[in-house]
Nucleic acid binder design. Structure first.
Lengths: 121, 121
DNA sequence: CCCATATCTGCAAAGGTTCGCAGATTTGAA
DNA sequence: TTCAAATCTGCGAACCTTTGCAGATATGGG
């Protein structure tokens, strides 16, 4: 009965995919709707090549959908609730860090979970 | 305003820590209460050394608490809700795999989210 | 004290990830 | 067609993770 083995591998793959600061910021950046590669790169102050490489990974795992319009490729979260689920991880962030940087966490939760008119959950 | 940078790094560290099939299974194994190293190793059919190494990582990030009794070291989740939060990730597992292995996911959710008060199985 | 059990730590090989850079591709405009 | 903008892909160096194994440490019993 290898169900648990298989599923734990799949969940681990998902978490590995998410476990990069740039990709997390990109996902939260897409929370409110679609954005093109340079839009994301500018918003996060990252080289567009790197953003494109990260998007390729998210695409390969079907976490984002692509829409091409002219020269731009617009991306959106295929399951927007993902962004909220990630925010729910904040309480589990190492307690030592929370003591030192609790304000950061609180302000980021406020910034990131600021309510969107679009996506329903 | 480096809050988002800092927090995205911390969340990424947490996800990286969780992003291993053995560690995920260990966390779900501890969902119902404490267990010692050989108990976990036997339950998951893993070498005890490896379980110990994984526990060292979880310990370093304060995800588990340790209680020593005689020769045994009992571990428990410091924040048991973590196990439930991980199960909430199942809907985000790659859709291609879900189509092939949806039964696995469903049965594992049933197994892992069972609320039974008895620890043994 | 000596031994077995339970667990931890250090190490090195194998394997995976990240990142910038160079070059390829696609598209729209002149 | 030729060019420039936007994006993608391939590659290699640097870096990080995983894993088994050997040896260290701690505990309880005889």
């Amino acid at each position: 009965m290898p169900s648990r083995l298989i599923v734990s591998r799949e969940v681990a793959d998902l978490l590995k995919l998410l476990a990069h600061p740039d990709r997390l910021r990109m996902i939260e950046e897409l929370r409110l709707g679609e954005k093109d590669v340079t839009g994301i790169a500018d918003a996060l102050t990252l080289p567009a090549t790197r953003v494109s490489q990260h998007l390729a990974q998210l695409r390969a795992h079907r976490l984002v959908d692509e829409r091409r319009a002219g020269r731009s490729h617009f991306y959106r979260l295929s399951q927007p609730q993902l962004a909220g689920w990630i925010l729910d991880a904040l309480p589990f962030v190492d307690v030592r860090n929370r003591l030192d940087e609790g304000e950061h966490i609180d302000s980021v939760r406020a910034l990131w979970s600021a309510q969107d008119p679009n996506t329903s959950h």
